[in-house]
Structures are given as C-alpha cells and as structure tokens.
Nucleic acid binder design. Structure first.
Length: 755
DNA sequence: GAGCACTGC
C-alpha cells in the first residue's frame, strides 16, 4: 500500500529491518533442495521478485491470487518435501490441476538453478504448448519471456544463455540436445510433461534419463502424466536396490462433472449415428455447443454438409422451437484463418425471442489433445480415430481407422466439462467400452518405422539396441528392419557403430534416406537442388485442391509439372515460388499452399546451416538436362530401397524385393509409365499406391547401390530377370573390369565416371 | 483417378 510499485529502487526504511532484508535478498536462508513451502510462499508474497530482485509489477499479485486457487498450489508443501527426498518423482494431475505451470516454478524455488548456472527443463510434446506455457509462466514469475523463463523449439530459441533458468521445450528438442551432450549437464532438474501421450521422443528420453540418473545422482527427474497409468512409470523409475517404485504425487483436477450416455446396441454406421445424435441434441438439449469427433477430412466435410442441410430443414419446418445451427470443421490442414472459426460465438437466434443458436465443431483427434475449445457442453464420441500402424514386413506406415482407447474416450468426454457440467454421448455400448477398448493407446514406438529412432539411439551412444531399457520394447523385427536399412545406407558398420557418414547424417533432422541423398548430392553436382527437394518433402502437401475448383487446380498443377518425375516438379515449384518473390498471391493463383512453401523455405535454411557446419558444398549444374539426370541419380543413393518395376502393360508395378503390387498415385505427374521408378512414399488407402514418383534407370541401381542390388539375394521373377539383363549388358560394356559392383560408401567415383 | 490422424527434429 505504502510503496509505489513503479519505482525501481525500493525505499529502505529501517537499515536492518526484516522487511528490507526480504527486499534485498528474498531467497535468504533458502537451502537448495531443502526449501519449505512457508519459505516459498513468503518469498512469493514479497514486493520484490525473488529471482531478479526487481519490484513486482502491479499485475503480479493479481495473477498470484489466481494461482493460489489451483489444486496443485495446495500441495506445494507435499511436493517440496517429496522433491527434497527423492531423485525421481511421478506426478499425476487431471486437466486444470495447474501442474504444467506451477510445478516447474516450485522446482525453481527449491532447486535454485540460477545459483549454480543450471537450468530446469520442462518438455512438451507440441510446439504451441511449449510456447504458450512459457509465456504464461513468464507472466506469473513477472519476468520478460526469453529472459529468466524461456522456451526452445525448432526454428526458435527464446532463451538467453546465462539468464534463462526455466526452459520449456519440445521433447524432440531435448532429445536433439542429448545427442551432443549425453549427460545433459546444463540441467539440474528435468520434467517430462504429458508423459502419458507416449510420443517417440518422450519414450526415448525416459530410457535415457533412467540410465542418466545412475550416472548423475545430482540430476532430479519428474515425470508428469494426466491419466492413472502412473504405476507403470513408478515401477519403471524404480532406481533403488530394493526395487521400490518411484514415489507418486496425485493432484486432483478441476473440471465440471460430465454425464456419460451409451447406446443400447452397437451402431452399424457411426457417421450416420453421429449426425443423428447431433441433431437430437440440437432439438432436445439446453443451449451449449457441441463437439463431434470423426476421423478425417473427408468424413468431417461430409458430415458438416449433411448436418447443415438437416438442421436448416428442421429450423424452417419448426422455427418456433429449433434455432439456427452452424457447423465448423476442424483439422490441421485447414488454413489457420478457418481454424480460428472454432472460437466464433454461436449464431444469434433468428428472431429476438426465438430459440437460441448453437455451434457444432466437427473435428478429428486434434481437439482431443492439441486444441481446447471453450463453451463445449456436449461431446459426441463415435469411438474411432485414424491411427498410425506400422507393418515391419513390408516396411510401411499407414493410417487405419481404429477404435480409440479408454483413456482417449475419457479425454474426449472431459472436453464437455471445461466451463460447466456437460454431457457425453458415446455411440457404442457400455459393455464394449468396458470389454473391447484398450486401456491406453499403444505408444508410438510400437507403431512406427524406427529407422530414424535407431539412428538417434546409436548417436546417443546406445550400443545394444535390443537390450536398451525401453518403457515398452518395440518388436525385434521392427528394430531389425531399421538396422537393415541403416546398414544398406552405410550408416552403421558391421559392429553396429556409426560410420563417419552416419555421424554426419545423425546431425540432420531428416529420415536417413533423405539425409543420405543430401550428403552425397555434391558428388552429383546438384546439392542445391537436392536440398530443395528434401525441404519440400519435409513439409505438408503444397498442392491445394478446393472441392469446387478441382479442374482449375489440376490445370495450374499441370503447368508446373515436370514430366520426368514428381521430385523434379517439387523442385520446379519451389524455384518458381522463389522467382516470384515468395509472393502470397502468386501461390494462391497457382493453387499452392503459401504456408507450406514458407515452411519449406524455413526447413531449407536450417538444413543449409547444418550443411555449412559439415562443409557439404552447395553446388549445381548449369545444363538443365544434365542437372535433372544428376538429381535422379542422387535420389537413387538414398531411396534405392524404394523402387518399383513395371510388370505387364496394365500399369501395375511391383516393389523391388518386397514384391508388393502397387499403382502410381493419381496425383503423379509422369506422362508415361516408365519401367523403373523410385518413390518417396507407399500409401495404403483404397488400394496400395506409390506417391511422389520419379523415373530412374536400372543401371544406376546396380552402380550406386550394389550391396542392395546383389542379384543373388533376389527371388526369381520379372524384376530379377530385367536387372540380370542390365547387369549382363554392363559387364560386357565394362569388359576388363573384374568387379562391376560399385561401393556404396563411395558413390563419388562411380558418379563422376558416369558423367 | 484419389487424398490428408497428429506431432516432432
């Protein structure tokens, strides 16, 4: 009251009064990791920032009052005691408990990282979360974002070395850091948040931290999770000899009750049932917005149209009792401006005293974790989502509509209770919920191609991949497949150690095939172009195709298409974008996503910086015909395991060695059906397709990937016969050379010879 | 002649 909060110098009244000591040294008497909640609360109450010693801004105390109401705040003492006594803690807290914002701050007060030149890290699975939580916590701690509190995500490091002591970051970013600093020396405490999501990066980090905890007994670890699968983490992090599980701190959530309804019988058509349920809610339930979960873009857009039609119809028939309804689709490939529509208020009644309007958001899983929509009172949950599955036999990741887990269903229901009590309509029976749904969604590590992960693990110094202490161990076959790929790419030697090439490859945030072709591309005088292609392949689809302008979009695409292959088309698109000065309207007029192109630009410069660091030259070839030839050869050096051979005349292709029957994807721009093609992606939709396809010559396979194209390892068949013919011709041509097999590790000489 | 669950480096 007596002090002007805007003054910089606090008035010092009595020379040695307790008050002035608290101002000058708010953390006086704090013993690292032995701090009590009384001490912390006293320091928080003071007029000066305990970490900067600056006077607090006026809003600080207002925010503090809000923080005090969070459930986790009441457990500060319990937490600090547990933090003092243990190296590893597991915490569970439902949404609204405040754990993500408060626990890292409690840790800072106890750990005092700034006094020892260390940091507290808190990981998040998503970039937006890392950014927005850091901003909130900076406000709460009354410091500018990027100073004492900061965040670190790909493309953006909002931290100040020497100043930042609380850092929010993506899990992938911490994993990257671990590759160059296996002991994570700069951190005194590491908090893994949202561990229940079981992202690949969080799973690997848990394994690393478990072993690091034994080497660095000074490192504290906190695993935070939303659901009740805490016991698994507690047992996993049981570090003591006695095998006692890590201690658990439970924090209650703060949300409103949600009443759950099930169907009496299983629904044969969940989309139809979902539409019916939404309309039923609209007619019969009190005001409040609806969230409907479906699986993909097409399903969502389709349902939107049908609901709109039916709702308009029913309002026109019965304007006295049915209000207007707006349908808002939500999925990530929507332009941001359209995604913003989910925050629009519901429509007003048609007449001043008519029935109120309602908003229904129809979303895929993005609304389950990544985005929260306030005002949702009703959730309609058909119980399905698209999930990634990995088939190690044919090395293909695909998306499959599958039943969700119980944990997912609970998360979805919870979306109805964020602002007031709500209702959740599950379009399956209670018996199915109890008996058929898995407890948890399978962790990503069990559903992915692990080529990249294995490369990361080897780079992290893990020698025995099979015996690495995974929270959930992947199938040995999946690991073998990954090792096989890395071996053919010459990333690993026969002892499973990184080759010098592998060392460099691991530095690139790319799949191994792409990293390989980028690194060898200077040998083909086209690293400038391969860099562009790699960047374009690393971002979402750049082609826009609005449903009512398909013909125009296809025509625009045809103008940019290079008939030799889709990879070269991507190169052409990027170059045209740059020639047109990165112009937004140029992109728009050509039915291209400016957002994706800008992202490609960003990725390209990041990769270029890494190339510079490892002195990988950026070179090009002037003659376009020669250039395209060189680019296609470089593609072979990375993607020789993704080749298909035309069989017969009907347009069927057979993938090399795996012998999968595939077709060229309709988006493919090739003007003929070449005998040999290299592809970026195998997609399994209505049938198996290969996407982003470029013509190659079979002799390049024998020349640049002789290990893989050792014909003795091929099953008899059309592909082998064709390759045999090419090989015989080559042998005749280079008569006098005893061994025509090139060395995979040294494509350079082979390549130069070919020019 | 068909997509594109979502993240992350």
């Amino acid at each position: 009251m007596s002090k002007n909060p805007y003054t910089n110098a606090p008035p010092l009244k009595g020379p040695a009064s307790a008050k002035s000591l608290a101002d000058k040294e708010p953390l006086f008497g704090f013993l690292p990791r032995k701090v009590t909640s009384q001490q912390v609360q006293k320091a928080m109450k003071g007029d000066h920032n305990p970490f900067t010693k600056q006077p607090h801004t006026p809003q600080y105390k207002k925010i503090l009052e809000v923080r005090k109401k969070l459930p986790v705040y009441a457990q500060m003492n319990e937490f600090l005691k547990m933090f003092s006594d243990n190296q590893v803690i597991v915490m569970v807290g439902e949404t609204g408990s405040g754990k993500t914002t408060q626990i890292p701050q409690f840790v800072c007060f106890s750990d005092l990282p700034h006094t020892k030149g260390k940091m507290v890290a808190c990981t998040q699975p998503r970039r937006v979360a890392a950014m927005s939580v850091a901003k909130r916590v900076a406000d709460e701690m009354d410091v500018p974002l990027g100073k004492q509190v900061g965040y670190s995500i790909r493309f953006e490091d909002m931290t100040e070395p020497g100043t930042t002591f609380l850092k929010y970051m993506t899990d992938g970013m911490l994993l990257r850091e671990a590759m160059n600093d296996p002991n994570l020396e700069r951190y005194s405490t590491i908090i893994l948040d949202e561990a229940h999501e079981r992202t690949l990066a969080t799973d690997i980090l848990m394994g690393l931290l478990k072993s690091l905890a034994k080497r660095r007994t000074d490192l504290k670890i906190i695993v935070m999770s939303a659901t009740l699968d805490a016991l698994k983490f507690q047992k996993y992090f049981s570090l003591s000899q006695s095998g006692e599980p890590a201690p658990l701190l439970k924090v209650p959530g703060r949300s409103h009750p949600v009443e759950v309804f099930y169907t009496q019988e299983p629904e044969p058509d969940y989309v139809e049932a979902a539409i019916r349920t939404v309309l039923m809610i609209h007619r019969a339930e009190k005001p409040g917005d609806i969230l409907l979960f479906l699986t993909g873009e097409e399903e969502i857009e389709d349902a939107c149209r049908k609901i709109k039609l039916e709702a308009d119809d029913s309002m026109n028939k019965d304007p006295g009792s049915v209000g207007p309804l707006v349908c808002i689709p939500l999925y990530s490939s929507l332009p941001p401006q359209q995604q913003q529509r989910i925050f629009d208020p519901p429509p007003p009644p048609r007449t001043p005293d008519g029935p109120p309007g309602r908003k229904v958001v129809i979303s895929n899983n993005i609304a389950e974790t990544s985005l929260t929509i306030d005002g949702i009172v009703y959730v309609v949950d058909p119980g399905f989502s698209k999930q990634k599955v990995y088939n190690s036999r044919i090395r293909v990741e695909s998306l499959l509509v599958s039943p969700i887990s119980k944990a997912s269903a609970q998360q979805r229901a919870g979306r109805a209770g964020r602002t007031r009590p709500g209702k959740c309509f599950r379009l399956y029976t209670e018996k199915d919920f109890m008996k058929e749904l898995e407890e948890q969604t399978h962790p990503e590590i069990l559903r992915s191609n692990l080529a990249n992960t294995v490369l990361e693990l080897v780079k992290l110094g893990i020698q025995d991949l099979v015996r690495f202490d995974y929270v959930d161990a992947p199938a040995p076959e999946t690991l073998m497949r990954a090792l096989e790929l890395l071996n053919y790419l010459a990333v690993l030697d026969d002892e499973g150690r990184l080759t010098p090439l592998g060392e460099v490859m691991a530095e690139f945030p790319l799949d191994p095939q792409m990293a390989k072709m980028l690194i060898v591309s200077p040998e083909f005088n086209c690293s400038n172009e391969i860099l562009t292609i790699v960047a374009m392949l690393s971002v979402p689809n750049v082609w826009l195709r609005p449903p009512n302008q398909r013909r125009e979009a296809d025509a625009a695409k045809a103008l940019l298409t290079v008939p030799d292959g889709d990879h070269l088309t991507l190169l052409n698109v990027y170059n045209s974008y740059v020639q047109n000065a990165h112009d937004r309207s140029w992109a728009w007029n050509n039915y291209l996503s400016q957002l994706a192109l800008a992202q490609a630009d960003n990725v390209r410069s990041q990769l270029e910086r890494t190339m510079e660091r490892y002195e990988i030259a950026l070179v090009s070839t002037q003659d376009q015909r020669k250039l395209y030839m060189n680019v296609r050869q470089a593609l072979v050096c990375g993607f020789f395991m993704q080749v298909a051979h035309k069989e017969g005349e009907k347009g069927a292709y057979l993938t090399v060695k795996d012998n999968q029957v595939v077709s060229l994807h309709p988006s493919c721009g090739l003007d003929t059906q070449p005998e040999w093609v290299i592809f970026n992606e195998f997609v399994l939709t209505t049938k198996p397709y290969i996407r982003t396809v470029t013509e190659i010559r079979p002799e390049w396979l024998l020349e640049f990937a002789s290990n893989y194209y050792d014909l003795a390892t091929f099953n008899a068949g059309e592909t082998k016969r064709a390759l045999q013919g090419v090989q015989n011709k080559r042998l005749r041509k280079v008569a006098g050379v005893e061994d025509a097999n090139g060395k995979l590790e040294r494509p350079s000489k082979q390549a130069r010879k070919g020019q």
